[in-house]
């Protein structure tokens, strides 16, 4: 797996989709490639977030602690991007992510991410756009949910 393939994968993530290839390459080059064996944790619910992960190969479970025990809310695979909320704002991890099998990831640290944003303002515009569209999406969901509960 070379740098160029990582760049292609990053391009599939909406937040990074419109960035110039050279910026994506910088992001990929300065990020670490980390391999998790099965059952190793990316991070635990409640930790402070310090990085987001792009899954390059393998699968990982997203687990949420509930009063009735651990709940598997999703399984992530190749091309999935996880943990990005924690690098955009200072909130604790809302879930635990655990490797299901041997999983290779690209780890984008918060520190690195912010330094890049600071250096290239056009990145922040793209990210703003992406967040706004997510907000719009969740607002719609909320409205639908409210409409459903009222009706």
């Amino acid at each position: 797996m070379s740098l160029n393939e990582e760049v292609e994968m990053l391009r599939n993530i909406p937040m990074f989709a419109k960035l110039e290839p050279s910026k994506l390459k910088l992001l990929a080059f300065t990020s670490e490639r980390i391999t998790y064996e099965a059952d190793q944790l990316f991070f635990s619910q409640g930790d402070m977030g310090d990085a987001a992960y792009l899954i390059i190969e393998g699968e990982a479970d997203v687990l949420v602690d509930t009063p009735s025990g651990e709940l598997n809310v999703a399984t992530l695979g190749r091309n999935d991007f996880v943990g990005e909320i924690a690098i955009l704002c200072d909130v604790p991890r809302t879930a635990t992510v655990r490797a299901k099998s041997r999983t290779v990831t690209l780890r984008i640290s918060k520190d690195l991410f912010f330094r890049l944003v600071a250096e290239f303002p056009e990145m922040s515009v793209e990210i703003m756009r992406e967040l706004a569209s997510r907000l719009d999406h969740t607002t719609n969901q909320l409205r639908d949910a409210l409409a459903a509960s009222n009706g």
Partner: peptide, 20 residues
Amino acid sequence: ETMIEIFADLPPGHEFFEQY
């Protein structure tokens, strides 16, 4: 070529040069 492509847009003396 790769280094020039990746790092050319960074201001001179940026910490990334030294690190990466």
